[in-house]
């Protein structure tokens, strides 16, 4: 369940709100649920107008690197 998308923070506003950008679409969302500091350029996971968490970009890169690693390992065995 729960449609949520990673989107980039492009500006921080008053009252724990911010503007996100997803593929050029901009929307105002609430940061009221976040327990971490947020800065412009961070990615957050957005659901029903709220950021649920900051996306951990290091972890995201690690997951993608793991895929790449699996692929190169596979190519070597060919």
């Amino acid at each position: 369940m729960c449609l949520a998308m990673p989107a980039r923070i492009i500006s921080l506003l008053e009252n724990e709100t911010a503007i996100i950008n997803l593929g050029g679409v901009e929307k105002q969302i609430s940061l009221a649920l976040l327990d971490t500091e947020i800065s412009i350029g961070d990615y957050v996971v957005v659901h029903v107008g709220y950021a649920l968490t900051r996306l951990d970009e290091v972890q995201a890169q690690q997951t993608l690197a793991l895929f790449a690693q699996m692929q190169s390992a596979k190519e070597e065995t060919k």
Partner: peptide, 18 residues
Amino acid sequence: NQYTRAVKPQGNIKSQAL
């Protein structure tokens, strides 16, 4: 946990408190 880029073992503490 496969979804490490968003999920932490303890979750979002502030949301839980709210």
